[in-house]
Design a protein around this nucleic acid. Structure first.
Length: 546
RNA sequence: GGCCCGUUGGUCAAGCGGCUAAGACGACGCCCUUUCACGGCGUAAUCAUGGGUUCGAUUCCCGUACGGGUCACCA
């Protein structure tokens, strides 16, 4: 076979060589050990948790004086959605992920571009042509139906699926046949001519998993699709070589095609990057685990967390505890330190698929928010509200001091409350403070309902004096409690329930429901002072008369 | 079906040949407490399984089971 003739037949317009590109994209001038990595999403409009998960590469890159960039894998035009690139950048920016180079909303920055694969067509074709020249690639004119029939045949014969051996019908065709098809205008793909033997096991060093042994690839996989655009496999190898990527961090589902990638790097004589295959986040489905699914699981979408309003930094705290097994310990020892001060290491990454634990996320967020000053919480909530609850945003803006005071209840203490872990939960929790959103949600405690309700509230209203200190106020509550036949100490009531109508818990909970609509709410005295005397009296009276 | 990856308590996990097998979340119990919280203390684990290697395996090797992933001109 005259490979030069074939190469020119297939790629008449390609005049550059691989060597030219080596000059265009020289090795990066970086310190020893610097990590160059990236995230490489496809612009489907769906930004998922995994994208953020793999953005952990940023920390690795910046911690070593390396580079973190964004590449857009838009080789599948069918799946592309308008505005998807902006969505990725927006989501990453929201979570504080910073790119040193790569695609931007309206263009790109950096010397190793273009960073959108479809704009790198010439580069891929140049590499493809060189492979044809070396006799390592050839055109295949099979139709989709041909391939389907082949697959069925293999299934029936219980043979391995794929384009190989006797099934690789275009592998050794004479150039005349190829020319004839080309003349007819038949669509073709470019396939890699694999010399691999499935008996050979290739050792691959994985940055997370250690030494892996993969079977050598024996199928003639597709390099270039019929539209001349590369498959993921080919684009990945060309790009990560010429963009001088040192570490490829990606989901473990790519482990299955690792043999192809390794084979490509090796035959092109390029140094393989360090592959780092992360474990897939799982979810419980009935009794079994399964991969988080785009269709079934809303929590796979990154927007889910933003909408729910989990604070960005706290979301990272959770992700980091899942990603790096020694992070949690570090964070416990340095609760106020920025998570970026933590030295991230690949070796500490988990290799088995973890169940995504929303409960723990919530707990981490609660802990995080409880340590923040009221102003911070106010700002965060307001920002969230502007996007997802404009009515709340308006109220917060109109009554900023009031909302700050409400947020501050139970906060200034060495044991701050942990009432909410997300902005949406905060919005719900704080609703009772504002007269505009106040509703009674819980019932009155049993021992205080009926006849005693009005009695208790009347007595309380009579003695209520906003000038009282918290101590004086509580002394009065106790007086009322005892005067009406309730035990001032819950313990006493527990011991002799027959001696009392109930305990102080019933009395205070009644007040709590009247003022907040809930049996679970912070300190009554503090709340009252946020509400002000008029509103406090109004609520107590309304509840008495209800 | 082929190939690949994984398997320590309900969940996340530490452990990298010798330990009473950390810690966190959740659960439960107790305590603190003038209410709601917060907090403190405590309870619960035959490291999937069989066989090696070794004086000694949760840790190393092989098999089995189970779980997951992947076998496209999608990434």
């Amino acid at each position: 076979m005259d490979t030069t003739a074939l190469a020119n037949l297939l790629f008449p317009d390609i005049t550059k060589t691989i060597g030219d590109y080596e000059t265009i994209y020289p090795p990066r001038d970086l310190p020893e050990g610097a990590v160059v990595t990236r995230i490489a999403p496809s612009p489907t409009g769906f930004v998922h948790l995994g994208n953020l998960y793999n953005a952990i590469g940023e920390r690795l890159a910046h911690q070593t004086g390396g580079v973190f960039y964004l590449r857009i894998e838009d080789t599948d035009q069918k799946r592309e959605v308008e505005g998807a690139v902006e969505a990725v950048i927006d989501a990453m920016t929201f979570y504080g992920v910073h790119f040193d180079e790569g695609a931007t909303a309206d263009g790109e920055t950096g010397d190793y571009g273009p960073y959108r694969q479809r704009q790198r067509r010439e580069l891929y074709q140049t590499v493809a042509k060189s492979l044809v020249l070396r006799g390592l690639a050839y055109p295949c004119f099979c139709t989709e139906d041909d391939l389907k029939a082949m697959h069925e045949q293999q299934e029936a014969a219980k043979e391995n699926y794929g384009y190989y051996g006797k099934y690789a019908i275009w592998r050794d065709r004479p150039i005349e046949d190829i020319e004839a098809e080309l003349k007819k205008g038949t669509e073709w793909v470019l396939r890699f001519r694999s010399e691999g033997d499935p008996e050979n096991m290739i050792p691959v060093q994985d940055g997370i998993r250690g030494e892996l042994k993969v079977q050598e690839n024996y199928t003639d996989f597709v390099l270039l699709k019929s539209d001349g655009i590369p498959t993921y496999h080919f684009a990945h190898v060309c790009d990560d070589h010429f963009m001088r990527t040192t570490h490829v961090i990606r989901d473990e589902s790519w482990l299955a095609t690792l043999p192809i990638h390794v084979q490509l790097f090796d035959t092109l004589g390029w140094q393989r990057p360090v592959y780092c295959h992360t474990a897939t986040l799982m979810k419980m489905d009935g009794a079994s685990k399964r991969k988080l699914s785009k269709r079934k699981d809303p929590e796979l979408a990154l927007s889910y967390y933003r909408e729910a309003g989990f604070p960005q930094e706290a979301t990272w705290l959770y992700l980091l505890t899942v990603l790096n097994s020694n992070f949690e310990e570090w964070h416990l020892a340095n609760p106020d330190a920025d998570s970026r001060e933590f030295t991230f290491s690949l070796e500490k990454m988990s290799t088995s698929g973890a169940l995504f634990d929303l409960e723990k996320l919530d707990n981490i967020c609660k802990e995080y928010l409880s340590r923040k000053p009221a102003d911070f919480v106010y700002d965060g909530l307001l920002q969230w509200a502007k996007e997802y609850d404009s009515a709340l945003a308006d109220r917060m803006t109109a009554k900023a001091d009031f909302y700050k005071a409400a947020i501050n209840v139970g906060r200034v203490s060495d044991k701050p409350r942990k009432d909410y872990g997300s902005w949406s939960a905060a919005a719900k929790f704080l609703a009772f403070y504002d007269a505009e959103t106040f509703v009674i949600e819980d019932g009155c405690p049993e021992n205080a309902s009926g006849g005693m309700k009005a009695e208790i509230l009347n007595r309380y209203l009579d003695t209520l004096d906003f000038a009282d200190t918290q101590e004086a106020w509580f002394a009065k509550v106790k007086e009322i409690t005892e005067a009406l036949g309730y035990a001032a100490q819950p313990k006493k009531y527990k011991k002799n329930p027959e001696l009392y109508k109930g305990s102080i818990v019933d009395v205070t909970n009644l007040l709590r429901v009247a003022l907040t609509g809930h049996q679970n709410a912070p300190d009554i005295w503090e709340i009252s002072h946020v509400l002000g005397e008029d509103e406090t009296r109004r609520r107590l009276t309304d509840y008495r008369d209800a």
